[in-house]
Nucleic acid binder design. Structure first.
Lengths: 358, 358
DNA sequence: TTGTATGCGTTATCAA
DNA sequence: TTGATAACGCATACAA
């Protein structure tokens, strides 16, 4: 008889310890962490408490081995602004690392092609991954969501404008965020404020615009249709919009662009016209992507907490995955996160104005 | 006595099957896949053959569980052009998925701060990951590589210009790639060719410039110092460079920028000056990042096969990790990949020229 | 140099 | 509703 050899430093909390502490068998703990229904409520609570107290995290490797399947979640993207994509990638990568699940990233093209092609892709996707993360604009693509629905893959929309019916969603309050930024500009002393809208196909665009208008109204600042330009979130559209706004007979003293890419474009155009930012023109963006600190001057912008949002999205997805495996149906959740106003150097009081009103 | 219950469809090839086929014990197979030295050469070969024949892939989950550690490799980045970063992320994510290893992405700031801070970060990094992937410009940052060397973490440089001594490297032949692109432009009929250099701190910059000059010389096209502008790979620097080049008394008919960001800037400036790309000016980039197809017209550029390169880099890193664990020393490898010329719409024959010479 | 016997942390199966 | 136990596929310690 040889003596048993311990191979771990026993540093990690395992399921046995939780079971012991909760006074149940380890199988019961397993059932709880996997969301099985057939556990008495009181038992479940005891287990949950033990889990919290010990700060137990299931070991992903052991799970994958025993269950013969790793948690794989797919991140789809399309029309990527590189800045937004890398932000998203960074965030989801973090989240995936925390939960020990695999991230599969795929470009979704031809969502507009619709029909059979989309369904075929969706079937493939259902084989490749247990859940799908949908950033804009994909979360609002009817053919895609229909195809995904068809193959029964759990989805969660991330950073959408509105919650897509039947799909979980993780987002910020775009309307309020735009309201906050606009109010900030007004406080700086701006009265002549321009706005560049985002892609009209994304609900977030309308919300941001709404926030802008309401903030003006709330502050009693007149709204001027001539200072609103259309855009689609791309740098190029920002260029056009900026040309338009800066050619106005009376120039706005500040321009709030619906995302950082377009804000960047505004700065470019302004500089070409020998306008100094922020002395002659304040520029505000939205998203706080990498670019915000790459351009000069650095952008004042609205930060979406992409990393925490991604983590929540992944957690939601994993949860949905488990429930689906047990043939339970899941209620779509709608999680709202707090945005943050990031003040950098692209905004200042307008020329000749003595700063604040408030 | 209960009968054994099989829980898998037995679809996967396991180490036992390989062992059986090779006529050895499973331990020997394990030794081979982990690169232990103490396996007779003939035995190793037999095992390798069995592995190939069965197409055996070790199960990452089982590995991680048994060894109490997942393969974790860190990807460091700094000064990220968002386009390049997302390209890199996409590529390494693919590679990581294939090998079942975890990707940890971190921003490295204050590499220039040097000294103690860098060493502290490096120590932390050594705890977080078994290997580090170093894209430019980090692979050429002396303080960083020194700090990493200090904590004995295996590193591999990806897409560097030159192989850093003592470090494995995965790259393309920048000089030849630039030569090819320049030759392509010459074949289109261009004789007045501008060039925008990259960051002088990165060796790839000099190589690309060299390729440009040599291609001119090889084709007997005169080189004009006035048509060369400095840059640092950023969009902003590209803007300045383009202004400079397009203000020249005699304008170049084509501009070859050392990366896509700067090429994008050239297009912006050209359009602002009412020059049509490619009718009045051809513009070529380098890297084939996402942006290349986002701008209008789409960029003719040089493609670095980032995804395969990342995979190779990860493989190299994992190999080095294993060897290090066994206290074997690893020879640095230098892997060269083939670039590809991507012809899109930003280049055309110059005005009034009848296309080709060749 | 190679092989034997466990152990890793979890889930699936089956019985209570 | 809960529990006991056998996989899961591989690596480590130790023996041969």
């Amino acid at each position: 008889m040889r003596k048993p050899v311990r191979r771990r430093a026993a540093a990690l909390v395992t399921i046995d310890q939780v079971a012991h502490r909760a006074g149940v068998s380890l199988m019961t703990v397993s059932r709880v962490t996997n969301g099985h229904e057939c556990v008495r409520e009181r038992t479940r609570e005891r287990v949950m408490r033990a889990i919290r107290e010990l700060n137990y995290k299931p070991n992903p490797a052991a799970r994958a081995l025993a269950a013969a399947r790793a948690d794989r979640i797919a991140l789809l993207y399309a029309n990527p602004s590189a800045g937004y994509l890398s932000e998203l990638l960074l965030g989801t990568l973090d989240g995936a690392g925390l939960t020990g699940c695999q991230l599969v990233v795929q470009k979704w093209e031809g969502a507009d092609g619709g029909g059979e092609r989309a369904r075929a892709r969706a079937r493939q996707l259902a084989r490749d991954a247990d859940g799908v993360l949908l950033p804009p604009p994909l979360c609002e693509s009817q053919p895609l969501t229909a195809a995904l629905e068809g193959v029964q893959v759990p989805c969660v929309a991330i950073a959408a404008g509105l919650a897509t019916p039947g799909m979980s969603c993780v987002r910020i309050d775009n309307r309020r965020a735009a309201h906050d930024m606009t109010t900030h500009l007004i406080r700086l002393g701006h009265r002549a404020m321009g706005f560049i809208k985002g892609d009209p196909n994304q609900s977030a665009s309308a919300q941001r615009f709404e926030g802008f208008r309401h903030a003006l109204a709330d502050a009693g600042v007149p709204f001027n249709e001539a200072w609103v330009a259309a855009g689609d979130f791309s740098y190029r559209s920002g260029l056009r919009a900026a040309e338009h706004l800066l050619a106005a007979r009376i120039r706005p003293t500040a321009i709030f662009a619906s995302n950082d890419d377009m804000a960047h474009a505004v700065i470019s155009v302004a500089q070409r016209r020998r306008l100094s930012v922020p002395r002659d023109l304040s520029v505000a963006g939205f998203d706080d992507t990498l670019m915000a600190t790459t351009v000069f001057p650095e952008l004042t912008t609205v930060r979406q907490p992409i990393a925490p949002m991604s983590q929540e999205a992944i957690a939601l997805l994993l949860e949905a995955t488990r429930r689906k495996r047990l043939n339970l149906d899941a209620e779509p959740e709608d999680r709202l996160f707090e945005h943050e106003l990031i003040e950098r150097d692209s905004c200042a009081p307008p020329r000749g104005a003595s700063s604040a009103t408030s």
